[in-house]
């Protein structure tokens, strides 16, 4: 069976600087895979390559067997991407935005709106202009947009960033629910509790290199760490 995501020796240079140095990992269909690491480690660059926004300088990546460079158009029909710092169209209402996406993804508008209302929990605020939304509301409408697309692979960069505890928990449950329905998730997060709760497997990336990969439980046990933060610090010390 083809891997949902297959990253094979990907390098990415910005000028002279290498943001990714031979990154490789595989994600199985229906899996929730977490990419964790400090700021500037290369998580967003990796996600952008998988989302067909950037091209790898060396190596390659595939989504369900489709090459992210050669078959970019097919890849885009299989994925949805929620960037860490994504914004909204200020003049469109939440309803307009969901209708816009429903038409792009050939989905029934009423059904998509109903689903978006459930995922975002925005209620009547969906009818307001998104320019008036708070940071948390924006994040929830964007997440709803990413999920109503019914992608085979949802790439979510910090999905709960800017959300309060209540909504963060709610969003995690939504991700779990969609995952149970067979959707593959690729997630990055600074919140290690969130990663442990959500992810079947994780990869720890530092300075453009994957330094560990596996199930969170086994990774912690193998390093004798109590949590993922300790695991990351011990891996860093080991590397030095």
């Amino acid at each position: 069976m083809a891997a949902a995501v297959e990253v094979d020796g990907v390098w990415k240079f910005f000028g002279e600087r290498a943001a990714l140095k031979g990154v490789s990992f595989r994600v199985s269909p229906g899996e929730v895979f977490g990419l964790i690491g400090p700021n500037g480690a290369g998580k967003t660059t990796c996600f952008r390559i998988l989302a067909t926004i950037l091209r790898p300088s060396r190596g390659g990546a595939k989504i369900f067997g489709f090459d992210v460079v050669r078959d970019a158009q097919e890849v885009r029909s299989l994925i949805s991407y929620l960037p860490e710092e994504a914004g909204v169209y200020r003049s469109l209402s939440g309803v307009d935005y969901i209708r816009f996406l429903a038409r792009i993804y050939n989905r029934d508008e009423v059904e998509a709106l109903h689903e978006a209302e459930e995922v975002s929990g925005l209620g009547d605020a969906l009818r307001s202009r998104m320019g008036s939304y708070s940071l948390g509301m924006r994040r929830r409408i964007l997440l709803a947009g990413a999920l109503i697309a019914r992608p085979k692979v949802a790439i979510l960069d910090e999905p709960t960033s800017g959300l309060d505890v209540m909504h963060a928990v709610y969003v995690r449950d939504v991700i779990k629910k969609y995952s149970r329905q067979g959707m593959t998730f690729l997630i990055s997060s600074h919140n290690m509790l969130e990663v442990e709760y959500l992810c079947d497997r994780i990869a720890i990336i530092d300075e453009g290199v994957i330094i560990a990969e596996g199930q969170p439980k086994y990774l912690k046990e193998s390093a004798g760490a109590e949590n993922l933060e300790e695991l990351f610090l011990s891996l860093k010390r080991g590397a030095q």
């Binding site: 952008r48 989302a51 067909t52 885009r76 991407y81 960037p83 914004g87 909204v88 169209y89 200020r90």
Partner: peptide
């Protein structure tokens, strides 16, 4: 600037 471009670029549109 509003960071809407990245999502737009990943939509299944040529």
């Amino acid at each position: 600037e509003a960071k809407t471009l990245e999502i737009l670029l990943t939509l299944p549109i040529h």
